[in-house]
Design a protein around this nucleic acid. Sequence first.
DNA 1: CTGTTAGCGCTTTCAA
DNA 2: TTGAAAGCGCTAACAG
Lengths: 335, 335
Amino acid sequence: MKQSKPRARIQDVAALAGVSPATASRALADHPKVTPKTKQKVVEAARTLRFRRNSLARDLRSGGVTTAVGYVIEDLVNPWFSQVAAGAERVFRKAELELIVATTEGDPKREQLVVKTMLERRVQALLLIPLSEDHSYLEGERQLGTPLIFVDRPPVNLIADSITIDNRGGMRLAVEHLAKHGHKRIGLLAGPEPLWTTGERLEGYKSGLSTHGIEFDKSLVRNVQYLESEVNSAALELLNVSNPPTALIATNNRITVLLLKSNKELLDKIAFVGFDDFELSELLGITVVTHDPLDIGREAALLTLERIENPLDTPQRREIGTTVIARGSGERRAR
Amino acid sequence: MKQSKPRARIQDVAALAGVSPATASRALADHPKVTPKTKQKVVEAARTLRFRRNSLARDLRSGGVTTAVGYVIEDLVNPWFSQVAAGAERVFRKAELELIVATTEGDPKREQLVVKTMLERRVQALLLIPLSEDHSYLEGERQLGTPLIFVDRPPVNLIADSITIDNRGGMRLAVEHLAKHGHKRIGLLAGPEPLWTTGERLEGYKSGLSTHGIEFDKSLVRNVQYLESEVNSAALELLNVSNPPTALIATNNRITVLLLKSNKELLDKIAFVGFDDFELSELLGITVVTHDPLDIGREAALLTLERIENPLDTPQRREIGTTVIARGSGERRAR
DNA sequence: CTGTTAGCGCTTTCAA
DNA sequence: TTGAAAGCGCTAACAG
């Protein structure tokens, strides 16, 4: 088995060009004080040898920080998460920062693991959609000045920047929209209990009800796991209580989509507003409260860049606003 | 502005534990020949100092190759691409390899740029969904033994591994499905011309027609850009030729979705089969020829791992099979 | 403008 | 089992 010849180093380039390694380095880095002629020789030598700079060595030598940003995400299958990533990537690209992506796949312990390897890689900043319930393990890193940006959910036991959706405000909008169309009994299909966003949205729902003089009724709320059968039966239960709701809100698009798959007819009968948009919602005439996931990514990235500039500034909590898009399902009047 | 104190190095850990840096390194690397007592001292010192290994230095010292894999993708907004990434990530995760993602955003020149920075980072392997029309610029890297895996489209002017969908076979399935339901005039809404996959699918279409004794009719084929208005007008034109088609095939899900958005009624009238699945296709009753993007990612990652093991083996071209999922739109009989 | 020297933080010989 | 010394590939500092 023949061994391929080793990769060219900058010394090799320098030798071929007849200059010192330092000069070669400068020439390739577009350093201003290099004779055009020298530069040309070096560039040519580099091309001949197919030289590729080793950024491990480079970054190690120059301060030990890379041009990479870590992004810890729950999973890449869910388009919402990957669109957030896309929004962030577009900003980072302009700043010449690359994205290292790692997934937690619902395991809070994995969060710590992937964060660890990213920090060992000396990423310039770390964005994370957190899963664990305690981020004090990042306190040391915070003190070292590494920008830590929490996305979609705030940090717990740690002071750090965060970008979230205005969950409460969005839910108030949903309730208001239905109330304006005469609804006083509004059911809620909510996501799993322990999630922070679920809690926020429930609070927004309550607050919206109270604004419109509607009393909160626990029997109109159901928490569900993301399973078609469970969503369907929860919806049916909700509509079978005495004095049933005339309108329904789903607290996120996964629930909305599962509901559509399992029981579209149900949504044709009552008023419905979904939280988060989804593909083909327009075609299906589903009214939603929404925001653009690309925006969240973009804002998160912009905040990251600010924090890289000024690591010592006070961490911020920013919220992304939401709007109602009326498409029919939410405009059916009560009775 | 107070400067935060510098990061602890392994020397600092060693000093605190009262051992040499070499021993500290061994202790933290679970090297077998370290006294439990020594190891404990080192681990404790590391914890006290919040030590985090610098993988730049580590990887540089030990051969200069990292545990990262590069993945060059067109964009993260399109769920198809991110699901391929997800499939790959799951495999790489088990092999303790991280994913560095970069997007080309439709610019072939950017492909070279991001490939360059990834190779400078010394990724262990490079997966790419290629955009450029010439990959000879990777020849040097190939010779150095870096695994290069092309996804969804094969390399041009370069011998390297590739994973693609069985585009021709899939299209033959679509034609066959419609032919079985009595269709002899089958229109084709195809993606942009220059794309390799578009060409393959067109070939599959022709081959399918010929198998079923149907003559190819150029007037039944339209190439479109991904714009709602263009897709709609192309579809209308297609149905207005003399002796119009009784069935329609869209060569990818972007076209299918745009068609649904712009003119769902049209699809209720004639037989329709889409290439690639999409969310809610079931609800809408759209028959498709499909495959699982997660599979492609997984297969690409598995091939990558094989190639890392045996860099000198002959590059392979693997194809992912497709199947028809009948949901109603494709089963309407001719006339 | 260019060369020399040193060293980023780590691991890997080699020797004890 | 541990330590001392060397060096991965590169660039910054300092001369010249």
